[in-house]
Simulated assay, not measured.
Amino acid sequence: MKLFDIVWGHIRRKRMRFIFLVSTLTFGVAAIVTMFAVTDSMSRQVEERLNRFGANIVMMPQRESLPLVYGGMALGDVGVESSHFKQDTLGDIRTIKNSRNLGIVSPKIVGVVDVRDERVLLVGAKLEEELALKSWWTFTGEFPDEAGEIVAGHDVASKLGLAVGDTLEIMGRPFAVTAVLNPSGGSDDAVLLGALPEVQQLLNRQGEISLVEVAAFCRGCPVSELVLQIAEKFPGARVTALSQAVMSKMQSMDMIRRFGFGAVAFVMVTGALLVFMITTTSVNERVREIGIFRAMGFRQSHIMEVMLLETLVAGGAAALFGTLLGNGLAHVLVPVMIKGVGPAVVNWQMAAWTLVVTLAVVLMAGLFPALKASRLDPTEALRTL
């Protein structure tokens, strides 16, 4: 008599109990798969939004400390010379090992100019990228989309008496003020922002860059590793990670992951207790059957194999059905629960891990009842006949 035949015979005799066990475990596995899919999609969505919330890495030339500051870069009074990057070398940043983790790379030229008898900071940037990088900006007017247009920060607009539609002359060249930033509390309030090529020309620094702001986030490695890789590509630069922004992102991601793992742990413990109770009940009901097997020459190891094989069959069936059900639920629920995210894609690696973990949990839960069954005294068991 084969051990699997014994297992299959018992499953057929107790089919309702087996169906109940498999169904319960299936819903548990489905809940785990769905939870992982939802939390993974949620973490990706949060990460994508956080990545748009400003730069977290700043690259600037090595320089002496100077009193004026913008975007983490120190500037001096008029007449103080500072070093710059060559714009045509910035493409090297996309060749670092973890270049896939780089989001927006925003080069800037910064200088001090005299406007209406006031000294102000003039910043040149790629305006479309700058608007994407500073997604929290609000402003009146229309953001510049062509040459000869400029954005005024709130403070500098108040100081110079600027409003949307005004014309401002900078170093003998007229610019239309198309937008005025609302107060942000940052250094952007005190600058005039124009297109990078135009500002480079005004400052007579064609092809030069004062600093580079980078929006980056690394799921598989620390941001400090990205900093080192960028520094290797630009040995003359000082590359700094804005620790507050990085920590904020990491804490947000960790909170989501902890929630997901906590929910999964609860479901796994509940499933393990269910397997333990049902297997223990099965052992108590099969005392006579086990006594007959032992009288027929079955060893303790055979009894354990029968009991554990039953739990593994139930666990394997639940893992298969639960993975299919969980992925189906995730496919439907993710777009509903998280706006802007498409249906979840089946994660086959997660499916494999789910199968392994489910089998391990049911095996561990059924181990003690199986051990108890194997140690039953055949003489005492046969007395129940």
Rank of each mutant, 00 (worst) to 15 (best):
K339I: 00
I104S: 08
E149I: 02
G172E: 05
A176D: 14
N51L: 15
G79F: 00
F53C: 04
N98G: 07
V267Y: 03
I209F: 05
N182F: 10
F36G: 10
V357W: 08
L363S: 15
N56G: 06
S65R: 12
P67E: 11
I256S: 09
S210Y: 12
L376P: 13
F276W: 10
V306L: 15
S106F: 00
V306H: 01
A152C: 02
A157M: 05
L333S: 06
L211K: 14
M277Y: 09
A30E: 03
S248V: 04
F36L: 15
F143E: 08
E130P: 06
P107W: 11
L355P: 08
A317G: 10
V191R: 06
D92T: 03
I278K: 04
A373S: 05
M1S: 13
W8F: 11
V334D: 09
S243R: 09
S135L: 06
N327C: 07
A330S: 14
V191E: 01
S23D: 08
C218E: 06
Q300P: 04
V69C: 00
L308D: 04
L160P: 08
V269R: 03
R63H: 13
E81K: 11
K14V: 03
L274S: 12
L162D: 08
D114L: 09
A55P: 11
M364Y: 07
S184H: 09
F276H: 11
L242I: 12
R100A: 12
K249G: 15
L367Q: 12
L160Y: 03
A319D: 08
A163L: 06
I278Q: 06
L192K: 02
A318R: 08
L325R: 12
M42L: 15
G322N: 02
C221W: 00
E47T: 10
V223S: 11
F53E: 05
S135R: 14
M337A: 14
Q45H: 10
A55V: 12
I338S: 01
R238Q: 12
R13A: 05
N204A: 13
L68H: 07
P222D: 06
V345T: 13
I93L: 10
A272G: 14
L90C: 01
F27W: 11
R17E: 10
D377S: 11
G124H: 03
H84K: 12
S374W: 01
T34S: 14
V115L: 05
L3T: 13
M35L: 09
P67M: 09
R17G: 13
L355Y: 11
E225T: 11
D155T: 12
G91C: 05
A370P: 03
